[in-house]
Design a protein around this nucleic acid. Structure first.
Length: 298
DNA sequence: TACCAGGAAATCG
DNA sequence: CGATTTCATGGT
């Protein structure tokens, strides 16, 4: 992104000139599970083994409990600040009133660049579950098996557990985090990743090769594979199809099945499919598109 | 109480 | 091979 001004003041990192950026859109659009809104309107979260607090006042973003070095080396990429979302939004919503509305609603979404391993397990857990429960499960896992990071504003924070740690636990222990029938998926995948760090290479491979590898993991199907590639590997043509995307594509575009949806997304959104999907998901879930009669849309 | 949740594996026909 | 059933758990 052009013309970002970064400075440090009173222990805070202040970034000015941040466009197409809204914390609520970013953290509530379903891409991440470890960020929580605080009473001051900002969010506290764990990523990169660190806990930070972030708050926003229009185009000014304020980070607490971090440094300029970490901003430059970690958070700048994590928040995808090097990307011009104006171009993306304009391109995907060209001649498409539906997308225009979805983009307007989630105008400040940025696709976070998250850890492959954490996203893998998070979205294995996500299957057939609601987002609040997914967040709760991941908190259980982190508190039980994650490394203690430290205390911030009176709360203790734990990193997402390492693959080696989970690989060494039995299914029964993993199940104590209330992940249900997904426990054996987690346990087996943890062993795979602990022995074979290949997942961290996929970012540099083709989307086909990445998908092939991910689909070979126990408990990973098409939807979860696409979420992993989109949220942790910068494979932005990925187009995860979940219940909400199915609903919104049927309700607003008249598409009946996954095959039709994939062809439409590839044809219409191309390299920006993942961004389009995320605007649509956030819009659909926030407005209950497909769950209520179509006249209820805001 | 029955049904649903950012689905995928197992099983069926 | 595509279509259906099953799988834990918590919220509504």
């Amino acid at each position: 992104m052009e013309t970002l001004i970064v400075k440090e003041k009173d222990g805070l990192v202040i970034v000015e000139g941040v466009k197409d950026f809204d914390l609520t859109h970013i953290f509530e659009c379903g891409q991440c599970f470890r960020w929580n809104r605080e009473s001051d309107g900002g969010y506290t979260g764990v990523a990169h083994g660190k806990v930070i607090h972030i708050k926003q006042d229009n185009e000014r973003v304020i980070l607490e409990n971090t440094t300029i070095d970490d901003f430059n080396n970690l958070w700048y990429d994590y928040f995808d600040l090097d990307r011009d979302y104006g171009i993306i939004k304009k391109t995907i919503s060209n001649n498409d009133e539906i997308m225009q509305e979805a983009v307007k609603f989630g105008s400040g979404i940025r696709l976070l660049n998250q850890d492959e391993w954490e996203i893998l397990i998070s979205f294995i857990i996500s299957q057939n579950r609601s987002i609040p429960i997914i967040k709760q499960n991941i908190e259980f896992l982190s508190k039980q098996y994650g490394k203690y990071i430290g205390s911030f504003r009176g709360n203790d924070y734990y990193d997402f557990p390492a693959a080696e740690t989970l690989a060494a636990k039995s299914c029964e222990y993993i199940k104590s985090c209330k992940v249900g029938y997904r426990a054996p998926y987690i346990q087996k995948v943890a062993q795979t990743i602990a022995n074979d760090k290949f997942i961290f290479e996929l970012k540099n491979r083709s989307i086909t090769e990445a998908a092939d590898y991910l689909l070979g993991l126990f408990g990973v199907g098409p939807k979860v594979a696409h979420c992993i590639m989109l949220f942790s590997m910068k494979k932005y043509e990925s187009f995860p199809i979940d219940v909400w995307v199915q609903r919104v594509m049927k309700e607003l575009y008249g598409l009946e099945n996954a095959k039709q949806i994939n062809e439409f997304a590839k044809e219409k959104f191309g390299e920006y499919g993942g961004f389009a999907q995320q605007y649509l998901f956030y819009y659909a879930r926030s407005h209950n598109i497909g769950k209520t009669k179509s006249g209820d849309r805001v």
